[in-house]
Design a protein around this nucleic acid. Sequence first.
DNA 1: AAGTGGTCTAGACCACTGA
DNA 2: CAGTGGTCTAGACCACTTG
Lengths: 235, 235
Amino acid sequence: MGQELGPVYLRIYRALKTELQQGDKKPGDELPSENALAAQYSTTRMTVRKSLQLLEREGLIHAWPGKGYYVSQPSHDMFRLEFREDAAQGAASFKSIDVIRAPEDIRDIFSLRPGSRVIEICRLISEDSGRVAYDMKYLPYIKGNPLIEQEINFFVPFPDIVSRMVPTFFFYTRMEIEAALPPEQVAFRLGCVPADPVLVISRYFMDQKDACIGYGRRYLRKDHEKLVAYSGYRE
Amino acid sequence: MGQELGPVYLRIYRALKTELQQGDKKPGDELPSENALAAQYSTTRMTVRKSLQLLEREGLIHAWPGKGYYVSQPSHDMFRLEFREDAAQGAASFKSIDVIRAPEDIRDIFSLRPGSRVIEICRLISEDSGRVAYDMKYLPYIKGNPLIEQEINFFVPFPDIVSRMVPTFFFYTRMEIEAALPPEQVAFRLGCVPADPVLVISRYFMDQKDACIGYGRRYLRKDHEKLVAYSGYRE
DNA sequence: AAGTGGTCTAGACCACTGA
DNA sequence: CAGTGGTCTAGACCACTTG
């Protein structure tokens, strides 16, 4: 027999999870009650509850007060997607950082008046195989904020830069993913023809009042890098 | 003052969360110890722990055994993406369901021998504004499995159909998102020209042994429907 | 009425960090 | 060393479901 290691609540958790993995229990089936499990493992309800809460958090089971615990029907429509600012192996060749008059689309995003200025940061990401992505980021320009200017020169992740602009770190990011033909300039910089579709990934950093405080857009060449997401129980 | 409702651990949780939202505490700052909070709220450590675990699960704070609790630096590179089988308002006009000899790409996905057959389900999704998406789904064909044939005619979500094929409900989905030009047939059915890029969303349903047990591919017209994902603390 | 999960108490021992 | 979080115990009362 394998050694039973670690805290009691983890041993119970693993035992129950194994039962579910092996198909001994199907969605809709009832689990033993907390009291039954406590007796079975010679422990108390509080310890058993900890095991069950773990399974519940993973979406494997759910509690029905007054009745018992039941195996859940797993959902496969919520996905986890990882998108890192700095491509893992990608060499990020710096392109430009400027204060410019905001183009109309950027003005709309930040709700700025015509003529307002924004900070624009452009980068080209390359790998061994060639150019992979072109990245544009925008921040509202606030006079006399040298902090930002200094830090932008270093490789501080964009979310962290955005974070300095708000009084609290409570903000969220909305990502939009679409397919498009690249603007001529972008195609040129990516070294592909404008008829080649690219993946466009937009990120809107929104504060608690749903105002946009940072915006980034990345063009991904279709022949490199895919976006990957997962749902369910990946080992 | 607003009424303080609900269990004690939720009141403590809300009080602490409000402090974080208002920026009273910044990432890296230390929180009061469990004992201090228990005294402050005239309760016990176990109750306070429950509040803190909630915040910890949300990624807002982390515990450092032997030291204390600290406000976390939130990460903005893990996103939540919702992808529903049946477009919310989209009228799913049924197109075809057939048993066919697997094309080479599908054979590779399922690791099938040449000549093997698969079930192919095609659907065209339309909205008021017009055709939005074209959907292809594949399952290995297993003789004498009338269950599947019967159920496929109804609008059972694909993950649930796939679920019947495995002894346990433990499987995961891998999604790949890319930009591409649509194959001629797909462009025709979507009512767009082949030079118009589309979003291609592939889903691989994988069992515990990393074998593919179901595959779906959706072509999304670029002028409709974007994929949207979120990270961080959305209210 | 008996059993269930949800909450809560008032202790306990442990391994760990810091002064 | 005193203080911290991590685990665990042996009770308790409540609202709820079921027979």
